[in-house]
Simulated scan of single mutants.
Amino acid sequence: MRILAIGDVVGNIGCRFLRQRLPALKKLKGVDLVIANGENSADGNGVTPISADFLFSSGVDVITTGNHSFRRREIYPYYDDAPYILRPANFPEKTTPGNGTLIYDMGRVQVCVINLMGCVFLENLKDPYETIDEILKKNTAKITILDFHAEATAEKLAMGYYLDGRISAMFGTHTHVQTADECIFENGMGYITDVGMTGPIKSVLGVKPELAIKKQREKLPVRFETADGDCKMDCILFQIDEKSGKTINIERIEIR
């Protein structure tokens, strides 16, 4: 089983670049399942039904999100109606639209996809360790993959060690910078701290540099705009043994 995880897709420009590059990559690498973080896929942050539909029609099978999951109110009903878009599982269950986990039935094997958010330097959600423990107690899928949307490198790495041997693979999102630490842990879990970003190369995490500079220097609110120009698509490809559920190969990819 080859599962491709794509870094945070930023704005309309990132969505269009993904549509241009993803089909050829899937064919070249023999990809079985594509997961993309789409929480910034709408211009101006957040995800909308339009941007989510665009990603799905471009070849993405599962969309994960993060701290911008609910930035756009028009997406709220979509979380309940569309089966293959997730929000972090540690949002309050009773009051939050959508789900934090799903089972993707591949026919020969089921894949559990989990979306979780860290708490260091982010919102004070339910403890991610407690949340993942509760999910895994009920999980019966042979292959399980986690998008851990977190700010702190240490929190992602600690979660990786915590889950080694319990899930198939974990990839980090949110910081938009691809890390060079992809590995297979001792007990067979594939891992990368952050898979990166899909969007404009000449940018500050997808934002026009001059606007990011203005915000940092002047400390006043600034309306961010997605940058223009050449793009890249950051990915991680996990090859997972369907019988053991362990990662047997991992490949970090950057498409320009």
Rank of each mutant, 00 (worst) to 15 (best):
K243N: 13
A24D: 15
D8Q: 05
T175Y: 00
N139L: 00
D241N: 15
I145C: 02
V120M: 04
T101L: 08
L220E: 12
V60P: 02
G7E: 10
A82K: 11
L25I: 13
G98L: 08
T65A: 05
D230I: 02
D53G: 00
D194G: 02
V109H: 01
I6H: 00
G44A: 04
I135A: 06
Y84E: 14
E210S: 13
I50A: 10
S203C: 03
Y162N: 05
K94P: 12
E130W: 14
S168Q: 07
V60H: 05
C15S: 15
R87G: 01
S244I: 12
G172P: 08
G229P: 06
D181L: 07
R108T: 14
I192C: 04
G199T: 00
M233V: 08
L211P: 15
I192Y: 01
Y162A: 12
L55R: 04
V62S: 08
K26C: 12
G38S: 08
G206E: 00
K29A: 10
M197Y: 03
I145D: 02
D61L: 11
T153E: 03
S244T: 15
G199I: 01
A5Y: 06
K29Y: 11
V60G: 04
E151F: 04
L18A: 07
G38W: 05
G190Y: 01
F238R: 06
L33F: 13
H68W: 11
G100M: 00
E218S: 13
I240M: 08
A82Y: 11
V120G: 04
G66W: 01
R16D: 15
I50D: 08
V207G: 14
E182G: 09
E186W: 02
E74S: 11
M117A: 14
I63F: 09
Y161Q: 11
K138G: 06
A5Q: 03
G66T: 01
A180D: 15
T101N: 07
D133Q: 12
G172D: 07
K26M: 13
P209Q: 00
S203W: 04
P209T: 02
V120D: 12
G118S: 08
L55N: 00
M159V: 09
F185R: 07
K29C: 09
E155W: 15
V60L: 07
D80F: 15
V177Y: 10
G38Y: 02
Q110F: 13
E242R: 11
A36I: 05
K156G: 09
N90Y: 12
E130G: 05
F91I: 02
G165N: 09
I132S: 00
L116A: 01
N67L: 01
A150W: 09
P77T: 00
Y78H: 02
S41K: 03
F238T: 12
V222G: 06
P83G: 13
A24F: 10
G229Y: 06
C183K: 14
G172C: 09
I255H: 15
G190M: 08
L22Y: 09
S41I: 03
Y78K: 03
K214C: 13
V62G: 12
E225S: 02
M1W: 06
T179I: 15
A36D: 11
N12S: 14
E74H: 15
V120S: 08
Y104C: 07
G98Q: 04
